[in-house]
């Protein structure tokens, strides 16, 4: 990896980059895996330094303030539970409901039996049980049976409703899984397309004092002989002149023009470009100062080049 990329990654890890430099690094990281990995690695290296900071106890009410803030934002987050978690939650809820209903039914039955027995015992010493009395004692038993029947009915209908809900959530889970599979497939296809594109990222710098802060990043697709570039902190070109991009192909005697660069007043340019001739895969880039409108063959001074 070139020192310039390492430099950007190191500065980024410590949060030292200006916004525009950060954008260049992010753009380059998108297509340069090695840079992306180094960037991530150095971010973790920098974060390890946090272990050396002197701890300071926050104010006593800090946790309460944080909780209040979380509560004030909490509603929307609760809705973002995944279908899988929801299914798991409903499953547990159903199990808990079944268990509670069973316990309640058992206790209700025990309580009614106890009441029934108490009543029977209370009546027993006063009068001898007769056929008539026994007849009177029957209704509570029937009531108990009916009550249990009713509770069972309620319980069965709740169970059916929960089963229906679980079924619906299972269907949603299946749909979500199908969608995930489709996205994975699309990502794989995109990966293959990217690999086929033969991308090359180049960073151009200068050894000339006036151009010391200038930076150009090029993403070049060798399969199509075209690319995209970002140029920043470029000094204003003198009147009657233009900056021109050149592609150096080791198989060709002269650089091939990549076109004139339209640099704005802030010294920046963002554009796509194509080679004016077919070039090979292993190319490099330079920028020179040429006559206004550009020239077919490089004549002027090179101000930026790929190391």
């Amino acid at each position: 990896m070139d020192p310039r990329s390492e430099e950007l990654a190191a500065l980024n890890a410590l949060g030292m980059l200006e916004s525009d430099e950060k954008r260049v690094l992010d753009g380059s990281s998108l297509v340069d895996r090695e840079l992306r990995d180094l960037n991530a690695e150095l971010e973790l290296v920098a974060a390890e330094l946090g272990r050396l900071v002197v701890p300071v106890e926050p104010p006593a009410d800090m946790k309460r303030r944080i909780r209040a803030k979380i509560r004030s934002r909490g509603g929307s987050k609760l809705r973002s539970i995944s279908p899988l978690a929801l299914i798991a939650g409903v499953g547990w809820a159903a199990a808990v409901a079944l268990a509670l209903a069973s316990i309640w039914l058992w206790r209700e039955r025990a309580s009614l039996n106890q009441q029934f027995n108490s009543l029977r015992e209370a009546i027993a010493p006063v009068t001898q049980p007769t056929a008539e009395k026994e007849e009177k004692e029957k209704p509570p038993a029937r009531n108990l049976e009916e009550e249990l029947k009713k509770l069972r009915g309620d319980f069965e209908s709740q169970k059916t409703a929960l089963n229906t809900e679980i079924e619906a959530l299972r269907k949603r889970e299946a749909d979500a899984n199908a969608k995930v599979a489709q996205l994975v497939q699309e990502a794989q296809a995109q990966k293959e397309r990217d690999a086929a594109m033969k991308l090359h990222v180049a960073t151009l710098q200068s050894e000339i004092w006036e151009y010391r802060r200038s930076v150009m990043t090029i993403v070049w697709d060798a399969s199509k002989d075209q690319g995209a570039l970002m140029l920043d902190k470029m000094p204003r070109v003198e009147s009657g002149r233009d900056y021109q991009l050149w592609i150096i192909d080791p198989q060709k005697p002269d650089p091939v023009s990549g076109g004139v660069l339209a640099v704005d007043d802030k010294g920046t340019a963002k554009t796509t470009f194509k080679s004016t001739e077919d070039v090979g895969d292993a190319v490099k880039f330079i920028v020179s100062v040429e006559k206004k409108g550009g020239v077919p063959k490089k004549e002027g001074e090179v101000v930026l080049k790929e190391p």
Partner: peptide, 16 residues
């Protein structure tokens, strides 16, 4: 700035 950037790069790679 060049000296700063180069120093940070060297230091971070060393630390890593």
């Amino acid at each position: 700035p060049e000296a700063t950037k180069a120093g940070v790069r060297r230091g971070m790679m060393h630390l890593r």
